[in-house]
Design a protein around this nucleic acid. Structure first.
Lengths: 185, 185
DNA sequence: GTCTATAGCTAGATAGAC
DNA sequence: GTCTATCTAGCTATAGAC
């Protein structure tokens, strides 16, 4: 058993960076290899299922991240709702580098014929909305109103990241964060 | 001069469909060929610059479409502001098939190393926002407020289309359309 | 203007040495 | 576990017949 040249955390981080920026079809194994510091054959050793498994593994991590940093934080009854929101939004700002980075959910929801990846994107979005739903309800909103604001929060983040990328300015993302804060005032 | 097998309108429509759904890297010439009914070599006859020129041409059309159906409609002083908004939103709903189709701006704002395409995406987004800015100002809003709502309209559309795709339901898009109507009430 | 055929390359994936 | 070398399929792009 030779030691791993690159640990799992660093490996997954490199794969995520390429996938979120280039998407599934745009992310070549050569680029994934360069970004991680592992040669192609080594990537196949870590992910015998190849590029498909790489995308699935990254999305599994992202789904877990959203559950932990968004859903679990937003429904954490030990904190005041306002503090939960600030905490979750802080993690989100960091994850998207204050609007400089694309969203992996957006990148991997393009049509690329990967059913499993699509399922994980869907689950991640549902988890996100569930978190904001709980937050809204804990703030005293009706289920219907809380659902609407949860949907709006996801739309604002996704939309602002697309606009930030397209217009080459993170301004839209900062606007979205403030807007989300304001709808939960 | 042999007659064209496929006219420009139908040709561009086929190319747009593939590009908005698969993105630049995911759209292969084989698929563009199938979608348009022209063989690969014929596509090179129409677009000597190859796939790059295809993407640029599609984006040129999209930019023109947004100028005509969004910007020009929203700033048309011959109509009442409310009617301008309803007209533009109607065109937008149709263009995105009520949330069933992806946005080409989103698809082509992924990193694919095409500077010119990125410029056209940026210009299209600016044109969109300029239209909603004029609408807001004609409704009596301050420039600052009108700019914010213009940005929000673009974010809502882009975000809702990503969410609609990812959660496999056009519900988010319908929500966004209603939301835009409500912020210009 | 469209086509068939094919060049030249890079993609994803595998075999086997170390 | 990582690597070099290599396979095959698919890609973008071109040549030349009709």
């Amino acid at each position: 058993m030779r030691p791993q040249k690159v640990n799992d955390e660093s490996l997954m981080a490199g794969l995520l960076e390429v996938l979120r920026s280039k998407g599934y079809d745009g992310a070549s194994l050569s680029e994934l290899s360069m970004a991680t510091g592992l040669k192609k054959a080594s990537l196949y050793h870590r992910f015998p299922g190849g590029k498909k498994q790489i995308a699935e593994s990254v999305m599994l991590e992202v789904r877990a991240w959203i559950k932990q940093e968004v859903l679990d934080v937003l429904k954490n009854k030990k904190m005041k709702p306002k503090d939960r929101l600030d905490t979750a939004l802080g993690r989100i700002e960091e994850f998207y580098a204050w609007g400089e980075k694309s969203c992996i959910l957006r990148a991997l929801s393009m049509d690329c014929g990967m059913e499993q990846v699509g399922d994980l994107v869907q689950a991640s979005m549902e988890s996100w909305q569930k978190g904001f739903l709980k937050l809204g309800q804990d703030m005293g909103l009706s289920k219907k109103k809380a659902e609407k604001r949860a949907l709006e929060s996801l739309i604002l983040i996704q939309g602002s990241l697309v606009v930030a990328k397209g217009s080459r300015s993170p301004q839209a993302f900062k606007y979205a964060i403030e807007k989300i804060k304001s709808i939960y005032l």
